[in-house]
């Protein structure tokens, strides 16, 4: 909650600053840097109120950067696979046991999984214990490796944020 409040405040203050002092150059890159500056100020303020929120924000930033890295890798892999005639796809459906309990954690995990290389979240079982994933690049039929990658990659990072 405090994070959303910080972002809203940063947007509003950037807007008002550019409206009141028109001398500031309104280039988009300048605006982004101003926004980032406000964000840093609010993070440092949140240290004095709530130490936990500060570390949570750091972890959220790390998660977002990791997510963009995975997204770019995924797109380049898809492009390589589409543009070369030989196919090296070995698809499989993998059942991953979930440690995430609440709805928010499962939604976040499914959304992140859909944008990593070659995976697509298909279904959640009725008792919310298993997530079914369509994975395109399975190396030599090794389903355990896929499960281990997902549990160590995204699920651990998301659980670290939501259960601090």
């Amino acid at each position: 909650m405090i994070i959303l409040l910080n972002i809203l405040l940063a947007v509003l203050m950037t807007w008002f600053t550019s409206a009141i002092y028109p001398g500031i150059p309104t280039t988009g890159l300048w605006m982004i840097s101003l926004f980032a500056g406000w964000m840093v100020v609010f993070w440092l303020l949140s240290v004095f109120y709530n130490r936990k929120a500060f570390f949570k924000l750091l972890r959220i930033v790390v998660l977002i950067l990791y997510y963009f890295k995975e997204l770019i890798i995924a797109s380049v892999k898809v492009a390589y696979d589409v543009l070369t005639p030989k196919d090296h796809m070995r698809p499989a459906i993998v059942a991953v046991p979930l440690d995430a309990k609440t709805d928010l954690e499962i939604t976040l995990l499914a959304n992140f999984i859909t944008l990593t290389p070659g995976t697509l979240a298909i279904d959640v079982s009725e008792d919310k214990k298993t997530l079914y994933i369509h994975e395109v690049y399975v190396k030599s039929g090794d389903l355990e490796q896929v499960r281990k990658d997902i549990k160590d990659g995204f699920e651990k990072k998301i659980l670290n944020i939501t259960r601090m």
Binding site: M89, R90, P91, A92, I93, V94, A95, A110, N111, T114, L115, L120, A121, I122, D123, S125, T130, Y132, H134, V138, G141, L143
Partner: peptide, 30 residues
Amino acid sequence: PLAAHIVSRAAVITKVEFWKKTNLDDLDRR
């Protein structure tokens, strides 16, 4: 991602065919 997930769930329910190389063990077990 939400739209992709929902449409593929509907496709599994209405039994759209998989590719012939797909490994379907876990789905069959379910």
